[in-house]
């Protein structure tokens, strides 16, 4: 394995990546540009890799979905660049990385937080091929809730057809629940637990 740094400029690249995720969660449905880490081993996407390296460390157990776990380079690369424990149980994971968005696991299997500490929950980083306000050939969802003036529309590919129902069940747990950071080819958009999601067209 190369001993190269993941970010060319660790301090400022991590800050910019964090700020993109912060803005994405603060304004659900908006696409926030992220410079991907092109050195990340497939099938880990460069943008998902940047988010993981910016936010994860030895304090945050990571869970990998089947496709990422089947690629040994991915676990080794993430362990090296973040120091995080890889292969945590979903219910113990601070972050879950999902390459196969179409078979997104049951959200209720991840850490939901407690009524007293709802922050003790998993953040899912979900790789999608298309993401943005005007992506074509993709699912369109209508979003409302904190961070959104009126409503917003997001176009996204790869997510399961019943995603709106699953996110509605997650939203109903508020203040418990998980938050989704969608990692597209050029940036991130987020669906925090506060967002009400309805399917516009499949």
């Amino acid at each position: 394995m190369a001993l190269a740094r993941a970010f060319a400029d660790p301090v400022h690249d991590a800050q910019q990546t964090f700020r993109a995720v912060m803005n994405a969660l603060a304004r659900p449905g908006t696409l926030q540009p992220v410079a991907g880490l092109t050195g990340a081993p497939a099938p880990l996407s460069p943008v998902a890799a940047a988010v993981a390296v910016a936010l994860a460390d030895y304090e945050t157990p990571l869970w990998l979905d089947g496709r990422l776990a089947a690629a040994p380079d991915v676990a080794a690369w993430l362990a090296f660049h973040t120091g995080a424990r890889i292969g945590a149980a979903p219910s113990q994971a601070a972050f879950a990385l999902v390459a196969d968005a179409g078979i997104l696991p049951d959200l209720a299997g991840f850490a939901q937080g407690t009524d007293v500490y709802p922050d003790r929950s998993t953040t899912l980083i979900v790789q999608v091929a298309e993401l943005g306000p005007i992506a074509s050939a993709a699912m369109r969802v209508r979003l409302a809730g904190p961070g959104i003036s009126g409503h917003a529309t997001l176009a996204v590919s790869c997510l399961p057809a019943d995603i709106a129902d699953r996110l509605a069940a997650n939203h109903a747990l508020f203040p418990r629940g998980v938050d989704l950071v969608l990692a597209g080819p050029e940036g991130v958009a987020a669906l925090p637990r506060t967002t009400r999601v309805t399917l516009v067209e499949a």
Binding site: F18, V21, A54, T60, A94, T123, G147, F174, P192, R193
Partner: peptide, 17 residues
């Protein structure tokens, strides 16, 4: 910074908590 950033992301996801 990472620890504080993670707390900020949770704070945004659970407004007022």
């Amino acid at each position: 910074k990472r620890m504080i950033r993670r707390a900020i992301l949770k704070a945004i996801a659970i407004p007022g908590y």
